[in-house]
Amino acid sequence: MPAIARARLLANREVAPGHYRMDLACPAVTEGALAGQFCNLLMPGWPLTVDPLLPRPMSYHSLDHAAGRFAVLFQVVGRGTALLSRLEPGDGVHVVGPLGRPFPLAAPDPWVLVGGGVGVAPLLALAQAGRARGASLEVLVGAQSAPRLLAVDGFRALDLEPRLATDDGSAGFAGFVTDLLARRLADGARYRTVFACGPVPMLRRVQALATDHRLSAYLSLEALMACGVGACMACVRPVRRDGEAAGYLRLCVDGPVVAAGEVVFD
């Protein structure tokens, strides 16, 4: 049952150029939240201000259920995220959550978590949950360049050493994170489940690799959303079941985590 509550902002740090990690205290929207789910951050000034109007959906990046705290990781892409980036510790933010479907934690391990750019956001929470249930897991983090690699310290805090990939070769593997995944698979890495989040071309490649290597794969997808609760039908994505077109999924309630085999990217 999602809650609507006012969260207290604990920290809002620019962790890479144009990327912010916001830490919030809000037991009501942390309780019961699972990795892969998201929350709607309402615009600063809500409900008195109406511009920008719509909530900004954000994956849980880190979850601390005992402390009633969570974090989100976001890139400034427009007015709404710019306003959120300027909030300071002590400010209040209204949040609706938890929303959406989580990653399936019962998926067989070893897992490999593949994040591209800000798509790494939900994977840290997944790594936390995986650690808690004793799953064997490996993390691949990709970005354009070394300064844009996100959440690396967060994974290290879980005693995980993420394998890095940068498009320009400034850190780790030189190339896309999906090239790194292909290399790991070719080298005999024995994964059973892939979890991925990132830009569409990256997810399409993960989908293909998972098919080729007969791995279970779950993708966390993004879409423009309005309500975030399933009512408005805005955030749809075409899907196929058993190889046939099966209409649209609402990513806010039928996702954002979707089995890779169901997703149609074209």
């Binding site: 511009d51 920008p52 423009l224 309005a226 805005a234």
Partner: peptide, 23 residues
């Protein structure tokens, strides 16, 4: 009705446009 292909909404000043297509 299946409705329209995405994107189906866009935020505008103090409002939004929708083109859901009567799904």
């Amino acid at each position: 009705r299946l409705g329209n292909p995405p994107p189906r909404v866009v935020e505008t000043p103090a409002g939004m446009l929708n083109s859901i297509g009567l799904q």
